[in-house]
Amino acid sequence: MTYSPLHLCLLFSSALFCIGLIGALARSNTILVLLGVELMLNAANLNFIAFWRYGPPTAPGTGVIFVIFAIAVAAAEAAVGLALVIAVYRHHRSIRLQDANQLKG
């Protein structure tokens, strides 16, 4: 079976996404959950680059612009998330995600 570069890239990004998802779901350490989320974001970015490089020809810069925005948002989101972790840690003395469950109905 011959895999085109696109196929390989997509497989790779899917695997990355799943790893990230599993990480986000399975870890109780909040920072590691954020890590998983980052991985998922980057997997998506990889998807966009793959299609930009190996996909059907489109206007130049379509996929790259999206990735640049996504990286910026991911960075901001990581910053905010880590700030939240520090704030919660100050209160609860723990960074287990299960411990921050007070916002419930």
Binding site: L21, L97, Q98, A100, N101, K104, G105
Partner: peptide
Amino acid sequence: SYSKVQTGDAHGYLRAVA
């Protein structure tokens, strides 16, 4: 009863998203 969906459990939310 609907408000019980809000469990406060982040992992649960993520599972739902997945």
